[in-house]
Design a protein around this nucleic acid. Sequence first.
DNA 1: ACAATATATGAATATATGTTCATATATAAC
DNA 2: GTTATATATGAACATATATTCATATATTGT
Lengths: 108, 108
Amino acid sequence: MNEDKCIRKEEIDINALYDLSELFKVFGDSTRIRIISVLMDGEMCVYHISENLGMNQSAISHQLRILRSAGLVRPRRDGKTIYYSLDDEHVETIFKTGMEHILHKHND
Amino acid sequence: MNEDKCIRKEEIDINALYDLSELFKVFGDSTRIRIISVLMDGEMCVYHISENLGMNQSAISHQLRILRSAGLVRPRRDGKTIYYSLDDEHVETIFKTGMEHILHKHND
DNA sequence: ACAATATATGAATATATGTTCATATATAAC
DNA sequence: GTTATATATGAACATATATTCATATATTGT
């Protein structure tokens, strides 16, 4: 009974786990991590981000799109310029916990 | 002075950020996330992990090696069997924070 | 409407990565 | 030592992904 309304625990898990891996995949690229890193100091426009990382504007735009789709950054338009900032606190929390892990392992 | 001993802040950062992205890359695969997920219930041997995920043993061994190199899981041998468990609390913390982000975004 | 500037996007290419198959290593039982 | 079992590893293949180049879109100023 209620078979079609019922979502089994396993199904929920396997979908959630897939989404979770997709989320971490977004953190798992050095360009995107560096973008997140500079945005931790506050919002920044696309050109300044690309300048900061020493990469061309197109590459940055492509990566910003991926960060945006994952809900990690948020754009704000001001005239021709678009400023990006981190979307919520989880982004910083995940970043910092990961960094703790690294530093912890490094001191063994 | 002291130029060769001195590591500039930027250099530290760029290396740490690279390592950080490498760490998240390890989380960023659905097979590895599922392995971490089952190990959150306690240690498990390779065969049972592969049974649990419905994947062949070789694929699991390959992924366990990557998880091991990243310091996320730890092996314990008992006879012919090798039991794997999560290495430290950071693994669960990162996993759970990521999951929070997902659920949070899902309820918008 | 036109030119200039900021950002986004599509296609192409090069590289990285996950899985499978076959096989190697390690331990235990006999 | 031989056989059986558990896990690990190397090579090959298929797929995914990041960057570049060229170009499109959007906004502003004239």
